[in-house]
Design a protein around this nucleic acid. Structure first.
Lengths: 202, 202
DNA sequence: GGATAGCCATACGATACCGTATGGATAGCC
DNA sequence: GGCTATCCATACGGTATCGTATGGCTATCC
């Protein structure tokens, strides 16, 4: 427990470590997942963080600055995901495609999907968010397209399949709520196979 | 232009006809399409209608009552659409399916899609809305499933195709913003054919 | 051990919204 | 002409939120 006496930023201010920008952005992203854009209110977030908005306005100029940061963090994360997935796993393209579908098709990753939907809803009214979503979509579509091409499809075919892949994935997360009858699991598997391989489902 | 003197509800109150519940619900639905659930605020709607909230609280008990009405109106309309489409147009099933996809895939009907997305976002936080959406989905899925069966598919196959159809349609409306490069039209056509007929796209 | 910088609490004004209370205007009915 | 029901405006209290202003606490540095 030796305290290095030099440039140590801080450590304890009576039971709660001081917040930084990252902590605020993290909390804001959580709120976005749970309540959508309307959940990103300064005083509400402050309460979640156990501080008052005095803290917030020390770290941020205003609410908009936080929104911008949340958006950019999301964008960077998504783009990182795409390149990570494109690099590693250089096994069989079709398996990768099925895995991509699985990641986006609910199940685990509930939080990621909630954020995804919240951001897309946000994008319907905010041009800045719309631009970010469009960029992310471009990256993902390109990556998926390459995968399909890698499995032997023509560029044309690959393009339409990747659009189908993502539209289907996001759409499915709009249709499923908690329960939903069990068969959906089987249906999803069939559809994934359908999209990836083109076999007639059934 | 004879005025029947009996049970005539009203006609002119100085340039503006009196509002009724339906007019309020209509205005609310417009606001929902444009701004989402957060657009449904009493005083804002009142301004849109050119009145004050004094009027609103004469027609409705509170805000929640309006929300319920908007939701129910939407549900009834969607279910009517489904049965209308199921009855008429009894021509070729596959053509009907392609037409269904077209209706949901943006282009015209921007307003309908905006409302659709707003309601689904609403449903992510309100159980009442979630229930309505689920009911509508059931109707649509069943109707589409029958169409696929009518074109010679097995029930299993028809089930997964109809899920694919709607998930894809809603997902596409989450991905497209104003511009988006032109080829999407061609891609959509290919995908529609893919879903309806199972041909490899391209 | 006093000054300074980092981090936060509190208090304030301003706005937006909900719901209520109450009065006023208008149209039909007698 | 007055009565009544319909429909709406205005005023009010209450809450939530934004952003600002200002002061206080704690560590670190000299």
């Amino acid at each position: 427990m030796e305290k290095k006496p030099t440039t140590k930023p801080r450590a304890s201010a009576a039971a709660r470590p001081p917040l930084d920008r990252k902590a605020w952005i993290q909390a804001a992203t959580d709120a976005l997942a749970e309540e959508g854009l309307t959940g990103l209110r300064v005083e509400v977030l402050a309460k979640r963080c156990g501080v008052t908005k005095g803290s917030f306005y020390w770290h941020f100029r205003d609410r908009q600055e936080l929104l911008d940061e949340v958006l950019n963090l999301w964008k960077d994360g998504r783009i990182r995901d795409v390149s990570k997935q494109a690099k590693g796993e250089s096994g069989k393209p079709l398996e990768q495609i099925v895995r991509v579908i699985d990641v986006y098709s609910s199940s685990r990753n509930r939080r990621g999907i909630q954020i995804e939907l919240a951001v897309r809803d946000w994008a319907r009214r905010d041009p800045k968010a719309a631009k970010v979503v469009e960029e992310v979509d471009q990256w993902r579509l390109k990556s998926a397209k390459d995968l399909f091409i890698g499995s032997g499809m023509t560029p044309q075919e690959a393009a339409s399949r990747s659009l189908l892949l993502y539209a289907y994935s996001f759409g499915l997360s709009l249709m499923i709520y908690e329960h939903f009858d069990g068969d959906v699991v089987a249906l999803r598997a069939q559809i994934a196979d359908f999209i990836a391989r083109g076999a007639t489902p059934a």
